[in-house]
Simulated scan of single mutants.
Amino acid sequence: MKQIRTANEQDIEKVSAFLGQAEVSSEGVASIIDHFILLEDAEQKILATLGIERIEQDGLLRSLVISPGVDQTNLLTLFKSAISLAKHKELKRLFLATNKQASIQFFAMLGFEQVKMDELPGHIESSNHISQLLKKADPMFMVSQIEK
């Protein structure tokens, strides 16, 4: 049985270790742990994470790490939970960056629309996460309006 839930302070080490195994930066996780969604198995082992970095009134999806064997249904539920969390945290928009063309259709199904880099608001474009991504890849950006 799998469970999806919002992370809490007791999860900081577990989330940081999970991200580290996937060679994903866990920098800043402690300060935004309540903005992380976790997918766990029956033994509370993390199978997937998705974090939201709050930047002003917007959120930037980050730290998406998925263990092998997590199916699309679980992934869809993980993203829907993150969108619900963003709504609960009263964010206006959610942004994401991806370097996988194949994932564009999946995100569009969740209500995200593709935007060009020069259409990103300055506070998102200048975020540390986006700066790090741009050093490694040529990502595509997407945004979703959070409905109240």
Rank of each mutant, 00 (worst) to 15 (best):
K2F: 13
K2N: 05
K2R: 09
Q3A: 08
Q3L: 10
I4S: 11
I4N: 09
T6A: 02
N8L: 00
E9N: 15
D11F: 02
D11K: 03
D11N: 14
E13Q: 13
E13K: 15
V15Q: 01
A17H: 14
A22V: 01
V24F: 08
S25I: 00
S26C: 05
S26D: 14
S26V: 00
G28P: 01
G28M: 01
A30K: 14
D34F: 00
H35E: 09
F36G: 00
L38E: 01
L38I: 03
L39T: 11
D41R: 12
K45I: 13
I46Q: 06
G51F: 05
I52E: 00
I52H: 00
I55M: 09
I55V: 11
I55F: 05
E56D: 13
D58L: 04
G59S: 09
S63V: 02
L64A: 13
S67D: 06
S67C: 02
G69Y: 02
G69H: 05
V70A: 05
D71Q: 01
N74H: 12
L76P: 00
K80L: 11
S81M: 08
A82V: 12
A82C: 09
A82Y: 02
L85P: 00
A86D: 10
A97I: 03
T98P: 08
T98F: 05
A102G: 06
A102C: 03
S103I: 12
I104W: 02
A108P: 01
M109D: 11
L110E: 06
E113D: 09
E113S: 09
Q114N: 08
V115N: 04
D118F: 12
L120T: 04
P121V: 04
G122L: 10
I124Y: 07
E125T: 02
S126F: 07
S126Y: 11
S127D: 01
S131P: 00
S131Y: 01
L133Y: 11
A137D: 15
D138E: 15
S144P: 00
S144G: 10
